[in-house]
């Protein structure tokens, strides 16, 4: 075991290398490692947040879909009701129209009947007059005997 000047040389170089490590090696390495650690932590947190947001969005979408379905169902129901209403209305209208037309036709028929009766009556009067003429063989003054003819016609 020769202890000699080597010891001093080693001491000095030891000090120099420790200083070098402390000055140039350790701080940048630890700093970058810490930075990376923070970055990874941030990234993980962001991912978590993103996942959470996605979950929420999905929930919201589900809600929207549900609402839309409900609305659609409502609208369909309303439309069906309205359609039924319209059909009902049309039905009543048609019935009314039919009734009205029937009434009008009946009135017309009655009018026609009346007219026919009127004509028949006047014809009958004429016929009666003609008959009476024939019977009397003589011209009856139509104007003078109008009331008599009419009275006869009315009795028919």
């Amino acid at each position: 075991m020769n202890i000699n000047l080597t010891l001093i040389a080693q001491l000095v170089s030891f000090a120099v290398f420790v200083w070098f490590t402390m000055k140039f090696v350790w701080p940048p390495l630890v700093k970058s490692m810490d930075e990376r650690k923070a970055k990874i932590a941030d990234g993980l947190a962001a991912a978590e947040r993103g996942q959470h947001e996605q979950e929420m969005a999905r929930e919201r979408a589900k809600e929207y879909l549900h609402e839309a379905k409900q609305q659609a169902a409502e609208i369909t129901a309303k439309a069906e009701k309205q359609a039924a209403l319209i059909v009902e209305e049309a039905k009543t209208k048609a019935q009314e129209e039919g009734a009205r037309q029937l009434a009008a036709a009946q009135a017309e028929i009655e009018q026609e009947v009346n007219r026919a009766r009127e004509e028949l009556r006047s014809r009958v009067a004429e016929l009666a007059v003609a008959g009476a003429e024939k019977i009397l063989r003589r011209e009856i003054d139509t104007d003078a005997h109008k009331d008599i003819v009419e009275a006869v016609a009315k009795q028919i």
């Binding site: 140039f24 090696v25 940048p28 990376r36």
Partner: peptide, 13 residues
């Protein structure tokens, strides 16, 4: 020292 210094110089996050 050389290799660690090289790594430390290039160290990034």
């Amino acid at each position: 020292a050389f290799y660690f210094y090289k790594a430390a110089k290039k160290a990034s996050a």
